[in-house]
Structures are given as structure tokens and as C-alpha cells.
């Protein structure tokens, strides 16, 4: 599998670390319901299909969001978290 680092370009999977669902970028407000915080921290889907994930390019220190498909292993798009949360 190859991923495109927003800074370095296309690189091998071995250079990257998986950091979980990109849901982590959608932090609830500080005064949100307990339920919202519970879901933010603990509840994750396990989809066979399109996902949005956080990845980290270890050698250069860049975070990114990758849109990929767990059923086909296709990587559709990668972007910086700033672009992803715009």
C-alpha cells in the first residue's frame, strides 16, 4: 500500500503510522453532553468500504487525513488536517 504525504509525496506504507478514525478531528464543545463525549472517545464504526482516517508520516512529522476503501484497499485521497476540517 502506498500513501501520499501532503509534504513528501507518495511513499511506502512502512513510513506511516495509523492514528485512528478521522472522527478525532471533530472534537465536541467543552460543555457538550456526556453522550457526545462518550461517542467521540469510544464509539467507532468498523466499515467494509469508504473510511476517513488519520495517518502520521513518521520521517517528516506530517499528519494527514486519508480517504480510502477497506474493501478494495484503494486510497482515494489524502490531505492535511487543515484541509480536511475546512
Amino acid at each position: 500500500m502506498r500513501l501520499t504525504c501532503p509534504h513528501c509525496g507518495e511513499r511506502d506504507l512502512r513510513e506511516f503510522a495509523y492514528k485512528g478514525d478521522a472522527l478525532a478531528l471533530s472534537r465536541p464543545e467543552a460543555n457538550a453532553e456526556l453522550q457526545a463525549w462518550h461517542e467521540y472517545l469510544h464509539i467507532r464504526d468498523n466499515p467494509a468500504g469508504p473510511t476517513r482516517e488519520l495517518w502520521y508520516h513518521t520521517p517528516c512529522g506530517s499528519w494527514m487525513v486519508a480517504e480510502r476503501d477497506t474493501a478494495t484497499h484503494a486510497v482515494h485521497r489524502t490531505m492535511t488536517p487543515a484541509e480536511a476540517t475546512k
Binding site: C8, E10, R11, D12, R14, E15, T58, P59, C60
Partner: peptide, 24 residues
Amino acid sequence: PLDLRDSALSENATARTLLGHMTA
């Protein structure tokens, strides 16, 4: 794991990558 071909790493190009288990 870096692509070392001329098309990917030309003369005077640099890359942060892995060398064995080390970042390099």
C-alpha cells in the same frame, strides 16, 4: 522503502525516510 529511481530521486533531491529501523 524510498523509490530510488532517477524519476523519483534525481540528483540534488533529498528525502526524509527510513533506513533499516531508523528515520533518516
